[in-house]
Nucleic acid binder design. Structure first.
Length: 276
DNA sequence: AATCGTTCCTGATAGC
DNA sequence: TGCTATCAGGAACGAT
């Protein structure tokens, strides 16, 4: 499932292939995934537009077009963006394909079809922007701003990390991994954390996310959500996973079995001995 | 204003 | 064997 490191990996690879390119065609096989748009009108509005810049906002992929318009894609759980230099076989779950004037195409592939796409013409850009919280890899990431957000929240630590309006980009895998490295129990209320624990979060959140970017993301299991980058290759961070998906297996630090609980309907994995 | 529960979707898996 | 029920997950949405 693409979280910040996976989306960052994707946009870095997309920049090599797509910036400066002009969209020559758009094929839409699942119109319902286009939000706030009549999908029928999307191709004619996008054809001829040049990709000026590609950036990431939380887990959103944002394409800035040369005329001031914006294309926004969110991959949710199973979305993938796969580049092809030449002809390709359209797969069963290819939902939208973007073609480019100087050759090549980008397939939006999404098994569960929960991903979303959105086109904003120049006049509408101001009306809509993905609402995301602190960016852990930006200069705006400071101990003071994190402390302030934590003090004003009654959420448990896991839910706090997952809340995109608090911190942008952390999903289920990295939330568990970060809390393990900070030795914080996922059910602790954030506004009851010690200063040392908040400092640990402040340092470990960008550390873990940066490390995962270096490893080009996490590709776990062989299920629908298994991450692939733009060139259809796996990441390497799964080799560094300490707790996620390891229920019942021994903690690498102390040997006691990793525990799985549900918080807000999501699985959390942690070591009951190492995390307090 | 902050937080909670429901909904979207489909392949894999468990249970009968 | 073949069917049905449940689960996984992020975020928009409406309710509290």
């Amino acid at each position: 499932m693409p979280e910040l490191p996976e989306v960052e990996t994707i946009i870095r690879q997309l920049r090599e292939k797509v910036v400066g390119q002009v969209i020559s065609n758009v094929q839409i096989f699942r119109p319902s995934q286009w939000k706030l748009n009549d999908a029928n009108e999307v191709p004619e509005k996008l054809i001829g537009k040049q990709i000026h810049r590609i950036r990431r906002q939380g887990k959103y992929i944002v394409f800035d077009l040369s005329d001031g318009g914006v294309l926004i894609i969110h991959l949710r759980m199973t979305g993938k963006l796969i580049w092809s230099d030449d002809d390709f076989e359209r797969e069963k779950y290819t939902r939208t394909v973007f073609y480019f004037a100087s050759g090549g195409s980008l397939q939006f592939h999404d098994t569960r079809a929960l991903g979303t796409l959105l086109f904003l013409p120049p006049d509408d850009v101001e009306k809509y922007s993905p609402v995301v919280g602190l960016e852990p890899l930006d200069e705006s990431w400071t101990l003071e701003t994190l402390q302030e957000r934590i003090k004003n929240s009654k959420l448990d630590a896991k839910s706090f990390l997952m809340d995109q309006k608090k911190i942008a980009g952390i999903g289920n895998i990295y939330a568990s991994e970060i809390l393990f490295r900070c030795q914080i129990h996922p059910e602790r209320r954030v506004n009851e954390l010690t200063d040392a624990e908040i400092k640990s979060l402040y340092e470990q959140i960008p550390f873990v996310l940066n490390l995962a970017v270096e490893k080009m993301g996490t590709s776990l299991g062989d299920g629908q959500g298994n991450f692939r980058s733009v060139y259809n290759i796996e990441g390497e961070f799964q080799k560094l996973i300490r707790v996620y998906g390891r229920e019942g297996e021994p903690c690498f630090e102390c040997g006691s079995p990793i525990i799985r609980i549900k918080q807000k309907g999501r699985s959390s994995y942690f070591c009951g001995k190492c995390q307090r």
